[in-house]
């Protein structure tokens, strides 16, 4: 199994819903707490597993705004795991989820250095590395109703721009989306082979223009129709 997310850049409005859903689930979740430094002071700064960035593509007047949520890509070639000296970071054989064992991490930051996607953040209180767990504590928890065994960010996304599934299964929704919409990896040239895939914005739908024949300029030229009220 190769679990991960598809993120639809055509519909993400950058609402940050997924980021805060992630924060609230995971702060009491397996990787929590996700601490916040100076939460009510100058420059508050906490650990988040999912951040939304916004870019403008192209120059005035031909430009476009794109919102890009980013969390761990659960890379197939996860160098963050390779470099970890303590073995705290690992990639699960069963499903490819990359996790950090909080009891083993020594907070050396090396894995964050090895991650090209900014997916790892050091917890300011605990000194251990935090990262997206793909909500492993939701998707496998059989005590949750079946339709809720989804990552918190996926459940909450108001534009349904996030889809979770098995990329190994060619019939899964994620695999289909990647095929149909030309899904892309970010920075493929680095060779991490990230599992999470981004669907690029679509082309504009074509709408026809009403073919006009005559031009009427005044009341006189408009003939009343017989319409029963």
């Amino acid at each position: 199994m190769k679990l991960g997310l598809v993120v639809d850049l055509d519909t993400c409005v950058g609402c940050h819903g997924c980021a805060t859903a992630c924060k609230q689930w995971n702060t009491s979740g397996t990787i929590g707490p996700l601490s916040d430094k100076d939460p009510y002071g100058k420059d508050p700064n906490g650990a988040w597993l999912n951040r939304i960035r916004t870019y403008e593509v192209g120059d005035t007047p031909n430009s476009k705004t794109v919102h890009m949520p980013m969390s761990c890509m659960h890379c197939e070639e996860a160098a963050c795991v390779t470099v970890c000296p303590t073995g705290a970071s690992y990639k699960r054989a069963e499903d490819g989820i990359v996790l950090v064992d909080q009891d083993k991490c020594m907070g050396c930051n090396l894995c964050a250095w090895a991650c090209p996607y900014g997916a790892r953040e050091l917890d300011p209180a605990q000194g251990t590395m935090k990262k997206c767990t793909l909500c492993v504590d939701r998707i496998y928890d059989q005590k949750l109703p079946e339709n809720e065994r989804q990552p918190a960010c996926v459940l909450t996304c108001p534009t349904k721009s996030r889809v979770f599934g098995d990329f190994d299964d060619p019939n899964s929704q994620v695999s289909q989306l990647v095929r149909d919409r030309g899904g892309k990896q970010l920075m493929p040239e680095l060779g991490y082979n990230p599992v999470n895939t981004y669907l690029p914005p679509r082309n504009k739908p074509a709408v026809e223009v009403y073919k006009v024949t005559s031009i009427k300029q005044s009341v006189k030229t408009w003939v009343n129709k017989m319409i029963t009220r």
Binding site: T27, S28, G29, T30, I31, G32, P33, L34, S35, D36, K37, D38, P39, Y40, G41, G46, G87, A88, Y90, L99, D101, Q102, D103, K104, P124, A125, Q126, V136, D137
Partner: peptide, 18 residues
Amino acid sequence: QSPKMLSYATHKNVNIIR
């Protein structure tokens, strides 16, 4: 008092041990 550090959780987090 507004705290300088916040680590909210409702229970002690259950870690997945490797």
